[in-house]
C-alpha cells in the first residue's frame, strides 16, 4: 500500500491540528507538514483537503497581509472544526494503539 493511500483522512486531521495551533495559509501548512516528515506527498495535496474542510464548515478563511508582505488566504478553525479535531485525536490514539499492538505481537511471534 502506498503512503498516499494510507494518508487519506489522516492529512485532514493533521491540517486541523496545524491550523488549530496558529492561523496560517496554504504554503505555511505545506512547509510545516514536510518539516514533520511528510515529504513524500506533493504540496498541492492540501488544497483539495482544504476545499473539503471549508465545505464541511470545519475551517473558515480570510485574505489578509502575510508576515512576508503580500496578501494570503489564512485559515482558521471553526467551533465545529475544533470538535472534529478532538474526535480525530481520540480516533487516532485508538487506531495507533491497536495497529501497534497488532504489529508488535506479530513481530514478536516471528522472532520466537
Amino acid at each position: 500500500m502506498s503512503q498516499t493511500q494510507m494518508l487519506k483522512g489522516i492529512i485532514d486531521g493533521c491540517l486541523l491540528a496545524i491550523i488549530n495551533e496558529e492561523e496560517c495559509y496554504g504554503y505555511e501548512m505545506a512547509t510545516r507538514l514536510s518539516h514533520f516528515g511528510f515529504s513524500s506527498i506533493s504540496e498541492g495535496t492540501i488544497y483539495p483537503v482544504l476545499l473539503r474542510l471549508q465545505k464541511e464548515e470545519l475551517v473558515t478563511s480570510t485574505r489578509k497581509k502575510s508576515t512576508a508582505g503580500p496578501k494570503r488566504k489564512y485559515y482558521k478553525l471553526t467551533q465545529k472544526g475544533e470538535e472534529e479535531l478532538a474526535i480525530f485525536l481520540r480516533n487516532w490514539s485508538e487506531i495507533s494503539r491497536n495497529v501497534n499492538a497488532v504489529i508488535t505481537r506479530k513481530v514478536g511471534e516471528v522472532k520466537r
Partner: peptide, 14 residues
C-alpha cells in the same frame, strides 16, 4: 478564481 489565486501564490512562494 479563488483556487487559482491561492495556487498562484503557493507556486510563487514555492
Amino acid at each position: 478564481h479563488d483556487i487559482l489565486q491561492e495556487l498562484t501564490e503557493h507556486l510563487t512562494d514555492a
